[in-house]
């Protein structure tokens, strides 16, 4: 479903992604971890074209991703994204946040869009917040609205860029619970996170990145009990200790 073939990405002189080759199957849940600056965010931002890679081939759902592709809007509808900072639209109510994509991009009429919005707001367990503005919600609630916003596009792939890193500790679980439920529906998910408990629970594949390279790809069992590389062992030790 997502296929990287020798993908390289530069920011000016900085080599952000180095020779990335990896495949995500339909329905697969992949968790990417690694130290900051290792290229995890860049990797998933390339998948829906928020950044464009400089060489190599990246195919998503049969569509080749590049800056001048006419199919990028179609592709972006297939691929939802949840950001660390939520990025809800502050001038719209929660319901309007969810409806604007279906109405303007999927061209649904108002009633149909509202139906979709209410359905997914229920999915993330906050139907009662529909008429509030995002600023009035807690961080955990905002992030769940952001997840619902992606779902409203009926995306087949969801990308999560450190979805719980900006949250207070007591709100992390309400977001992770929603993500676990999503995983159980068979959604294809690529998640950048340091939440190893979540990773153990839902991941089919664990990926460890460092300095723009994929250092290790393994099943969660091998990854957590017997990682091959020393770098990965050290990283895991550090993360699991805290």
């Amino acid at each position: 479903m997502i296929e990287f073939e020798s993908v390289d990405k530069y920011y000016g002189a900085f080599h952000a992604l180095k020779d990335i080759s990896i495949t995500v199957r339909e329905g697969e849940r992949m968790v990417i971890c690694g130290p900051s600056g290792s290229g995890k965010s860049t990797l998933i931002r390339c998948i829906n074209g928020l950044e464009f890679h400089n060489s190599g081939t990246l195919t998503v759902d049969g569509i080749e991703v590049h800056a001048h592709s006419k199919k990028m809007p179609i592709l972006r509808q297939q691929v939802g994204m949840v950001f660390q900072q939520f990025n809800l639209f502050p001038h719209l109510t929660v319901l309007e946040n969810l409806m604007i994509g279906p109405m303007k991009v999927r061209k649904l009429d108002r009633d149909a869009a509202e139906q979709v919005a209410r359905k997914y707001l229920g999915r993330v367990h906050i139907p009662e917040q529909a008429d509030k503005y995002p600023g009035a919600l807690s961080g955990g609630q905002q992030q769940r609205v952001a997840i619902a916003r992606s779902l409203c596009m009926e995306s087949r792939i969801l990308l999560f860029d450190e979805p719980t890193s900006a949250l207070d500790p007591e709100m992390i679980n309400e977001v992770l619970d929603v993500m676990v439920e999503l995983a159980e529906t068979g959604m294809t998910m690529v998640v950048v996170t340091h939440e190893m408990g979540f990773a153990r629970k839902v991941a089919d594949t664990m990926v460890f990145m460092e300095q723009g390279r994929i250092v290790e790809v393994a099943s969660p069992e091998t990854f957590f009990t017997n990682p091959a590389s020393e770098r990965c062992q050290a990283f895991l030790q550090q993360i699991l200790e805290t």
Binding site: L50, P73, Q77, F83, N87, F89, A146
Partner: peptide, 17 residues
């Protein structure tokens, strides 16, 4: 903020939208 452009782009909006 930049994040607003990114969020709009990620739900498939064109630049004009």
């Amino acid at each position: 903020p930049m994040g607003q452009w990114e969020a709009a782009t990620s739900i498939g909006m064109s630049k004009i939208q």
